[in-house]
């Protein structure tokens, strides 16, 4: 049986005036896959991600996310995905519990579901002692782990993570990846961007965008073979060095 495709794009493009931010990208992501979405600053990653989340209409091309059309069914898409970025994740001046209640409500969970899953989440992360503390008072690493769990509170099919581990200490960064592995094992697809090249190695498959196009897409092992280098960092250098754009 063929693996279920949860993201499927064909020639997806986005133009801003005569600037082509995203140029006919075509790829598929499978259920439970950890998909690394790499690229230099300004390569078009954010533009592509916004389209995939249903936040920005494409200029041309086709895509389905969790089986829904990227043009007509954006509201259905938003219910089936989770999103977390490094910059904005949770409300700092709400407590841990209040954030869970707020986002649970946004995702349309019932009061009972919120209570039950919230408790589960707090136990899993060992946050019982600080559940009533403001999120702003938590260390960055805890915040990011909590933000990830909140983004998956509604059991989404896909979680989009935009540089989730930037600036996080090395131990917490690895604990964060444990959460990603666990989500993947539960069948959640993880779509992740990062500037840490060691993290590219943790992905099942990796795509590398350069100047609005996907220039390479394969497992880390095959990419290293293809470019005859020893590390994903070198694969990235090989591709991104040729970039024409001057960053975002």
């Amino acid at each position: 049986m063929e693996a279920e495709k949860v993201i499927q794009t064909v020639d997806l493009s986005k133009h801003f005036g005569d600037f082509i931010a995203c140029n006919a990208i075509s790829f598929e992501v499978f259920k439970g896959e950890i998909f690394g979405f790499l690229g230099a600053n300004g390569a078009g990653k954010t533009t592509a991600m916004k389209m995939l989340c249903g936040l920005s209409a494409p200029s041309s091309g086709k895509a389905t996310i969790a089986g829904f059309d990227i043009y007509k069914q954006t509201e259905a898409i938003k219910k089936r995905i989770g999103y977390m970025s490094q910059k904005f994740s949770l409300y700092e001046d709400l407590s841990v519990l209040e954030n869970i209640e707020f986002f649970g409500g946004i995702y349309g969970l019932s009061q009972q579901e919120i209570k039950q899953r919230g408790q589960q989440l707090i136990d899993q992360l060992g946050l019982a002692d600080v559940a009533k503390n403001m999120v702003g008072s938590l260390p960055l690493g805890w915040k990011q782990k909590l933000a990830f769990s909140v983004a998956s509170l509604h059991d989404p099919e896909i979680i989009f993570l935009d540089e989730p581990t930037g600036g996080v200490d090395p131990v917490t960064r690895r604990q964060f990846w444990d959460l990603i592995y666990a989500a993947s094992v539960r069948g959640i697809t993880v779509f992740v961007t990062t500037h840490y090249m060691d993290e590219a190695e943790y992905c099942h498959r990796v795509s590398i965008m350069v100047d609005g196009e996907i220039k390479a897409l394969d497992t880390p092992e095959n990419l290293k073979k293809q470019f005859q280098v020893d590390s994903m960092e070198d694969v990235f250098f090989e591709l991104a060095r040729g970039a024409q754009r001057l960053g975002d």
């Binding site: 540089e163 500037h195 090249m197 960092e233």
Partner: peptide
């Protein structure tokens, strides 16, 4: 102060 935070690997180099 963190001149390379959020900057890609090539630009960091």
């Amino acid at each position: 102060d963190e001149p390379t935070t959020g900057v890609d690997a090539v630009s960091r180099k």
